Structures are given as C-alpha cells and as structure tokens.
Amino acid sequence: MNSLQNRANAVLAFSISAVFCLLGAIALSALVIPGSPSGSVALSSIKVVTGQYDKNWINYRTRNNEFANTVMQIDADLSSLFHWNTKQLFVYAVAEYSTPSHPKNQIVLWDSIITRKARAKLSKKGLSNKYSLIDVNKKWTNINANVSLHWNIVPYVGYMTYGHSQASESYKFPLPSGTQS
C-alpha cells in the first residue's frame, strides 16, 4: 500500500502536468484567433532644427546635429486584437528611412500601452514625437521616411505576436529653419 506521501506526490505531479497541458493549449489556441485591426499615421508637420545633443539635454545654440520634430495624427481600431488571452497591447508609430551609409533605419516616434478593449480605438490629433529624432549621420537632408503604426500583443500565456499597418505615404524632411538649399 502507498504511503500518504506517495499519494500526495502522485496527485501533485498529475495536477502540475494537467495545468501545463492546459497552458500549452491556451498558448497555441491564441495564435489562431483572427483579428482585423486597422490603423494609420499621418504627419501634419515636420520641422528640422539644429543643435548639440547631450544625453541629458539639447543645446540649440551650438549647431552640430539636426533634430526633427513632428506633429502627427493617429487613427486606429485595434479592438479586434483583444481576446481572452490578451493582457495588453504595446502600440507605437515608427518612421522608416534609408541613407547611403545605412540602408534600413527605424525610429520610434510615439508609443503607448493599451490595457483595455474599450481604449483600443485611437483617434489622436496634434501628437508631437515622444522621442528625439536624431539620425546617425547628424543630418536630415534629402531623407524620405515612411511612417506606420506597429503593435505587439502581450498575452497572459504564450507567444508575443507582432503586427503593423501599411505606410500611407512618404514624407520628405525639410531643410533646417534658417538654411538655404
């Protein structure tokens, strides 16, 4: 006859195995749930200023780098991405461009975390870029950028999935204010 300790061990081992099988089924089933999100980002203005960058502040009097400041409009309906295994959405706007020395560059302009389905419909106007737009070449001259909306689905259990909207149009960065072409 089995002792109490052996019986407790068998029950615990079986329940842990059952829980892990259930979590595996949840993780796999969340990958096949369809979603039809829609989103777009439009830049209403782009302004390039010159200054010197320090990790703690920007000095606009010394003209070493060019910084781009944008004003954008975001319209998106991401509510179809919320289901029983969605913990939160990480949503961000990305500007993608290429230069002769670096063929693929991506800069995050704005981001947000959405934790409820009711807040997944975005209609934001007049948003400034949240992060500094600084190119590795220190100049924004003759650069065309495509802007798109990206999202990450953070699940309770399973794999993190990614998605993005199509870039609407290409935006040309202007010359810095006060310079001639």
Rank of each mutant, 00 (worst) to 15 (best):
Q88W: 10
A95I: 05
A93H: 08
I113G: 00
I134A: 05
N144D: 04
Q88F: 11
T99F: 03
K121Q: 08
W140C: 00
N129K: 06
I143G: 00
A93P: 10
T141F: 10
I74S: 12
S123H: 15
P103E: 14
L109F: 08
A76M: 12
Q88S: 15
R119K: 12
S112P: 03
F82A: 11
A145Y: 03
A118P: 01
N137Y: 01
I74L: 07
F82R: 09
S112C: 07
R119S: 15
S79W: 05
L81C: 10
T115R: 13
N142F: 07
K117P: 00
W140I: 00
N85H: 12
I114M: 12
T115K: 14
Y131E: 11
T86Q: 13
D77G: 05
D135H: 04
K117Q: 15
S112M: 04
W84Y: 08
Q88T: 10
I107H: 04
K138W: 03
S101A: 15
T99I: 08
N142R: 08
K124E: 03
K130Q: 15
S79N: 07
R119W: 09
R119A: 15
Y92K: 12
K138P: 02
W84Q: 11
Y131M: 01
S112R: 15
P103D: 12
T141V: 05
I113N: 11
I134M: 14
Q106N: 12
I143Y: 02
G126C: 04
S101V: 09
Q88M: 14
V94W: 06
N85C: 11
T99H: 04
S80G: 00
D75S: 13
E96A: 15
A145K: 02
K121D: 02
N105T: 05
I143P: 02
D77C: 09
Q106H: 06
L127G: 04
H102K: 05
S132V: 04
V94R: 14
Q106V: 02
V108N: 11
V108A: 10
W140V: 02
H83N: 15
K117G: 00
Q88H: 10
S98C: 08
V94H: 05
I107G: 00
N129F: 08
F82V: 09
T115W: 08
G126T: 11
S128F: 05
S101W: 13
D75V: 06
H102Q: 05
N85Y: 13
N105F: 01
A95C: 00
I113P: 03
L127I: 03
D111Y: 03
I134K: 06
F90K: 12
A95R: 10
A118M: 07
K125V: 07
T141S: 12
Q88E: 15
N144P: 04
V94L: 13
A145N: 04
T86E: 13
N129P: 01
N142C: 08
W110F: 06
V136M: 09
K125F: 07
N144G: 14
S80D: 15
S128T: 00
A118H: 06
P100N: 14
A93K: 05
H83D: 15
N85Q: 07
Y131I: 01
K130I: 04
S128P: 04
L109K: 06
I114E: 14
N85G: 11
I143T: 02
L89K: 14
I113C: 05
K121N: 11
L81S: 08
K104G: 06
L109C: 01
A76L: 09
